[in-house]
Design a protein around this nucleic acid. Structure first.
Lengths: 161, 161
DNA sequence: TGATTTTTGTTCATCGTTGTACTTTATTGT
DNA sequence: ACAATAAAGTACAACGATGAACAAAAATCA
């Protein structure tokens, strides 16, 4: 009931996180608009980029990399297969898994979309020096690591003070 | 068509942005789990926090602060009113606008949820010095500013180089 | 004043994401 | 070899977010 605890928005870490979240939200919206003429959306681009880097990956592995559920992949990938962007071929040794490959069209679209995305990121971070970007990457990757391990081993609820 | 352009994931700004996006995604998921016993989700908390700071705000203003559409508020706010967290009262001078207020229950839930969120943020950024957090806040707030102005005045499409 | 335009909020159809239940195929244990 | 368990992918219902079309209430302007 006492209000003289410092309010969260005066807290530097809280403030910085709010800014990060808002930036992500807006970046997603801007990227959506920037990709509209390619007829793909950010989730599709995430998939394409990962297939570009890791050709032959399975749906499960892809879902893990993207931090989404497997059912999500089961919805998106058939769409993208119908659009001729990707191809799904069954693994010979394990008949459960479907391995994913880019088509020529998919590779072309991916390159164009990555160019657009890179330009957008470069523009928004043009006043942020490279060393600062690298520092941000280090800190954010540590956050990712912590949250991933917390995900599989939920934190004890007595963390409040 | 030429492949000897540097691939995006070797680009420091690109790498740092990927990390930021993943961190946001995971933070959202962790926060969702951390709030489950309060029966609210991150979007509700965003609303509550803004009402805590800016009592008597209108739905329109709230939507603008949260960077979502007005229709989104029209879906969420009646739910929260039914749960007894907020109250909507018509403005006397402008009969179009509904002004939003926290109930006692809403204020209580907000304080508890903010405590949880702050603890989560503190934990994930505990190895990131305060000065670095402040630097991140500065850079991300600039990104937000750029993207907001780009939103209403879409960038000329000849920006690629 | 009276007509046009803006603004605020709602409704609705659509889409993406999630979690659960389910099928099929591998793996493990006896 | 056979049964039980685990893993990969799918189907489906539920929910949140969006944008477009709409109604009501200002504001603008002639």
């Amino acid at each position: 009931m006492n209000k003289n605890q410092p309010l969260p928005w005066d807290h530097p870490r809280f403030r910085s996180w709010v800014a990060v979240a808002r930036a992500c939200q807006l970046m997603q919206q801007s990227l959506t608009r920037a990709l509209v003429h390619l007829d793909i959306k950010p989730p599709h681009l995430d998939i394409l980029v990962n297939l570009f880097r890791f050709e032959g990956i399975s749906q499960q592995e892809l879902a893990r990399k993207l931090l989404v559920g497997r059912s999500n992949m089961s919805m998106l990938l058939p769409q993208m297969e119908n659009r001729g962007l990707i191809e799904r071929r069954g693994d010979k040794q394990d008949k459960r898994v479907l391995r994913l490959y880019l088509t020529e069209e998919g590779r072309r679209v991916t390159e164009e979309a990555m160019t657009i995305q890179t330009a957008l990121i470069d523009w928004t971070l043009s006043d942020t020096p490279i060393e600062e970007c690298e520092a941000i990457a280090v800190h954010m990757e540590r956050v990712v690591g912590l949250l991933i391990q917390e995900e599989r081993q939920p934190l004890e609820p007595a963390g409040d003070q």
